[in-house]
Design a protein around this nucleic acid. Structure first.
Lengths: 145, 145
DNA sequence: ATGTCTGCAAATCCTTTGCATTTTA
DNA sequence: TAAAATGCAAAGGATTTGCAGACAT
């Protein structure tokens, strides 16, 4: 891709090694696929995007779990009970505007992190994360219906 | 309970009637149980709290869905893929601070709705909703680990 | 060599659906 | 009486687990 995501990928791989994980081809492709997304994606979408259509979804889930375990992936629960996965760049996170119909997703430059963190700490909570995703129907889909 | 929740319950029942729904004993007890909670709860917890231990969970889910349909109940997705339910004043919604370990959830008086709505409309989106939930580990759970 | 990954199958959990029966209005 | 709610059983979908064989270091 580009040098930015390359160095992110390298950082993740190093941490994975440090934690005793192995660097397999599938794992690399999954990380690359995650790095290419600019929005959260489902395990199945990640599998497709990684060119692993023939790979068992279990393997994708296990890799996502392993990545989550080293803090490289964030899980995002949705309204319908499923979850999405997103590569976590230390010190950064994004929110999105997602079309319910065509699933197009645009990044929203909006940050409530600071406020949320303060509030959560005031309640005695630690290890704070937050999820914020905005859903709607985009203009194209609205016109076509 | 008190006059505030009584009037909320009455409002909900009227709305339910207006939509062609029937007012059954179980439905009333489910709404009352929801009204007594000051935080989101699982379908099973709601069933217990409503004194409907013998009632099929399906019935609880269907009632929660019906209430959601008239805007009286909000669904809150958890990180583990399950969901909690909370009574809401029709037209309003809340955000929460949820413990990853004990799943305790408290309401957060914080909403980015206005900002989000403007942003989404500027992008040409309609029928906007948003999910925002904050996850962490509460003090009790942190102490016990 | 040793511990980690992968695949296959089956299990699990929460939630939803189908259909016959009961209840509300 | 007609439409809606309920119960039971079974299905559904996303995710997880067990175990044997394959792979990375």
């Amino acid at each position: 891709m580009n040098s930015a995501s390359d160095s992110l990928i390298e950082t993740i791989l190093e941490r994975m090694r440090a934690e005793g994980g192995r660097i397999t081809q599938k794992r690399i492709r999954i990380i690359q696929a995650l790095a290419e997304f600019d929005h959260p994606a489902s395990a199945d979408k990640i599998r497709q995007s990684a060119g692993l259509a023939e790979t068992d979804l279990v393997t994708v889930y296990r890799n996502l779990e392993a990545l989550h375990g080293i803090g490289a992936v964030q899980r995002i629960p949705l309204e319908n009970g499923t979850q999405l996965f997103e590569l976590t760049v230390p010190g950064e996170h994004y929110h999105h505007l997602i079309c319910r119909e065509c699933h197009q997703a645009e990044r929203l430059d909006l940050c409530v992190g600071k406020e949320v963190l303060g509030r959560a700490k005031a309640h005695g909570y630690s290890q704070i994360t937050h999820v914020m995703e905005v859903y709607g129907v985009c203009k194209d889909c609205d016109d076509h219906s």
